[in-house]
Design a protein around this nucleic acid. Sequence first.
DNA 1: CTGAAAGCGCTTACAG
DNA 2: CTGAAAGCGCTTACAG
Lengths: 333, 333
Amino acid sequence: MGTPPEGPSRRITLADVGRAAGVSSATVSYVLNDVPNQKISEATRARIRRAVEELGYTRSAAARALSTGRGDTVLLVLPPWPIGPLIAEVIDGLTDDLGRQGLSLVTRRELPQRSVAALWRELAPAAVIYFGEVDVAERQAMRRAGTYVTSISGQVSDDAADLVTSTTGSGPLQVAYLAAAGHRRLGVAVPTDPRLGSLPDGRLAGIRAACAAAGLPAPDVRPVALDVAGADAAVAAWHGSVTAVCAYNDEVAFAVLHGMRRAGLRAPSDLAVIGVDDIPTAPFADPPLTTVKQDIAAITAHVSRLVGAGIAGAPPPPHPTRDFLSVVSRESA
Amino acid sequence: MGTPPEGPSRRITLADVGRAAGVSSATVSYVLNDVPNQKISEATRARIRRAVEELGYTRSAAARALSTGRGDTVLLVLPPWPIGPLIAEVIDGLTDDLGRQGLSLVTRRELPQRSVAALWRELAPAAVIYFGEVDVAERQAMRRAGTYVTSISGQVSDDAADLVTSTTGSGPLQVAYLAAAGHRRLGVAVPTDPRLGSLPDGRLAGIRAACAAAGLPAPDVRPVALDVAGADAAVAAWHGSVTAVCAYNDEVAFAVLHGMRRAGLRAPSDLAVIGVDDIPTAPFADPPLTTVKQDIAAITAHVSRLVGAGIAGAPPPPHPTRDFLSVVSRESA
DNA sequence: CTGAAAGCGCTTACAG
DNA sequence: CTGAAAGCGCTTACAG
């Protein structure tokens, strides 16, 4: 029913705890926040903690945010492209990892209408994590206001300070794997979803650079739509001219494999195919899909540490040397 | 660097806007919130709106939450099971739809350690949306405190008031589709992931009931692990004894199809297979997967309306009569 | 070793 | 038609 709350539902406050423990609310705040240089006896601390326990006190995020000028939330800005299982995993990992540090992950889709800056001002999050490119001016404004800003990005960043986490290198890894298997003429299958924006370009650049570095000819890049006939033309063009194709991701790889089946071609003999992501169905592709896997758990763990340190004003943790990337070799390449 | 914010980064407040517009902060608050019965001249309103614009004012979520006792956030409690593309879509849709109502979707994974109630007290969200079962006591406590609670659930709910959105029926739909195609002896492929908890049981119950209602014999239920050999035993057992299988979801269907390939069997002639979800790669299965699709956009739109009405204390929107479900018929069944 | 008090930025009866 | 003022629940110099 629409009846307003009534009766015994008053919120338990710091003052309530203080009263129960026989101290002021300030003291409670001190012990709850482990404020240093505040010599409070162990006995008092224990009494306070017990009162907290007994009353079931939880502090108000709003009040805390208001008085400190900064909340315990971390804003993850989701790009407008479709959220795949990978991003889901990232959200997941970040929620867990940050939660362990007392931070609440808040997710916001980046929409053309609503500016991130507006949401940022409203929420006053402790940090914001971008997923991809960051507007330089926006980032600076946030930093000036004391918000830690970082990004999980495919691009190499120009922001020396903390935009460090890179999840690329998948393209080069695909190329290296195929080159090691003796392939020299490579195709690249790029998706056609316009929502992906310039994302495929970055991946593509990585592949092109890797080909050049390895002394391979420039790859034969072709769009593959995610529908049943999407790969037909590309497969026809590749067949004979190219011996292996790097797919933008596993979904595109599935489309390519399907196109090959329609053309009576087999992987890897007629055309080797390698994906990116290792989605759950990758092992059940026909043939089972060789793909590049990102260690999402490691990525989120690192980003969480980065954010934690950044908020505390501590030096950032050393950037992991390994690349969070590996190829899982199955049968398609 | 770790330097604290300094210089011209003071936050713009209601009072600033009031000063600029030559009114009190209270008046600004009134026009910004469209408070009724507060006869403020159009001229004043315009002046205020211009000041807001010029100063780039955005109100502090924390202060607002603190003074109203309720934030503009909506907490979506994510179940501990793995987040698939479907849940990602739900998050997505809800973020969009609720955002349009001025509400911020906040997502929290349900973890064994951290209680939802604690987070709820901290955040003081306007509403919480569960994904599955809700603890009755917890729900009541939240409601008593004025938080709107609802759930997107597979189970039919006992909570007459507002736990209305049901996303099940996929099982019965699978059965109906197969029965219409002349199948009578059905298999069911259930996943083995322990994180799914009792979820498959609900689906299974639906399938069993549908079989009984359609006069079909009880289905032959078998677990299918999501690895390469996972479906082998089940496929061997089903072959000959059963003519079609309902997979718990598309991923399981992929595993079954893969097992069939390993056994030299073809769908649908040897065994028809139908999934649930219509994941992006479903059209590229071999053969293309027939599956039950949920209209996520419609679901999130409805839930958003439900939440919006619930928060406002308005009567809930009529429950949509259609079931958000349809089968997309491809070749596997 | 601990507390009184101001302040964070809003909302909202209440008074005029 | 509009404003002064109390209050939401914290944090944090400051005083003792």
